[in-house]
Design a protein around this nucleic acid. Structure first.
Lengths: 203, 203
DNA sequence: CGATAGGTTGACGGTTCTCAAGGGAGGTGG
DNA sequence: CCACCTCCCTTGAGAACCGTCAACCTATCG
């Protein structure tokens, strides 16, 4: 059930839209992005995937992969064959529940992300999201390594790369963050939370 | 496991953010919307729910409802207790698989919806989405009954109500649709598909 | 060291939002 | 039954945010 694929290089593809869906992918090392190309030829970044996270869920419902998945750094992944996953979870109710909860969490995250927000709000929420995911895996929450290109961040947030650049500059001028190429240090997380508050539900 | 709640009136709430999550809701009759209020007091419409569809999935992962759900028309729903659902599906692998597929489909739909699109593209895709869901339930695909207010459509699509109004007017002037208050007739579905093509993945 | 890709910054313009006013539809009470 | 109210929808004018275009800078790599 667990096949490991090592030695993935930046730009290597783990899956492509239309590929037969055989299972999910677990990130062991490196960072990945999932994206699609629309009928107009435009790219749409759908998500970033850090070590410890699962990729490829969108493919289950139709039996084919719904996104392209590519490595942003050198990476290692694990194949989780879906038929075996189902077989095991049929005997192991706790795994079944875990799977459903996992899927449900993804739905909840996406639901939170949809909505109408300003460039500042989106950027603050994005930085905090990456920070939180770092922290969950035991890494420092204040020192981020933005492994993806500005273009990818921009695309993911539905902004122009220039806007991402400008917002980061603005945040730095306000002493909220410290930017050095792909390294970002969060100086005033509380203030960032306030800016991102629009994405936080009160009820 | 199946408790039916009838006689829901427009504005009645099925769930509120923070409510204990006990189970999902199946729409039997009427139409519903789910939404949240953010920390700034702004409303964000997260989805519309037609007869035959499930609501409340976002609440599973944290054990509390993540959205408010309210009736837009007179409605009837069914409560599906989650603990019983799990218990049954532990014995019935086909139900388990069905559930996972259902969740995965929701993830795929949301994934498709995220991205950067113009007002025309969003509106065309929205009309086609409602049309498709009508057709799936055996109703005419060309004659839509937009049971929600313009304000809700606008909010859902991250547009201003004025923009929704203008786009509909523009579509009508181009003979793509015929609008009469909440009734919309799709005259040239193919052309709408072309406009919404940006939301259709090519790979 | 030159080439290339990625990132930053500035000027300008466009799509969409905001503000404002007016028109209908439906409900309520006299 | 009609006046009146309210909510919703539509339309117009102006503004704002962000995207586009363009130039320049910086890192990386052969």
């Amino acid at each position: 059930m667990l096949r490991t694929r090592e030695g993935l290089r930046p730009g290597d593809h783990v899956a492509r839209v239309g590929d037969d869906f055989r299972g999910l992918f677990a990130v062991r090392a490196g960072c990945f992005k999932s994206y699609v190309i629309d009928m107009d030829g435009r790219e749409h970044v759908k998500g970033f995937h850090l070590p410890g996270e699962l990729m490829g869920i969108e493919g289950i419902s139709v039996g084919r992969h719904a996104t392209n998945i590519t490595a942003l750094e050198n990476g290692v992944i694990c194949d989780l064959r879906y038929d075996e996953l189902l077989r095991i979870s049929a005997r192991e109710p706790s795994l079944q529940e875990h799977l459903l909860r996992l899927f449900a969490r993804r739905i909840a995250e996406q639901t939170r992300r949809t909505g109408d927000y300003s460039a500042d709000e989106k950027m603050a929420a994005f930085l905090l999201d990456i920070s939180m995911r770092y922290a969950e895996r035991g890494r420092a929450a204040e020192l981020l390594d933005l492994f993806m290109a500005r273009r990818d961040i921009a695309n993911y947030l539905s902004l122009a790369t220039e806007t991402v650049s400008r917002v980061l500059t603005r945040f730095q001028k306000r002493d909220l963050i410290l930017v050095n190429r792909k390294r970002v240090k969060l100086l005033r997380i509380e203030r960032l939370r306030e800016i991102a508050a629009a994405l936080t539900d009160a009820g």
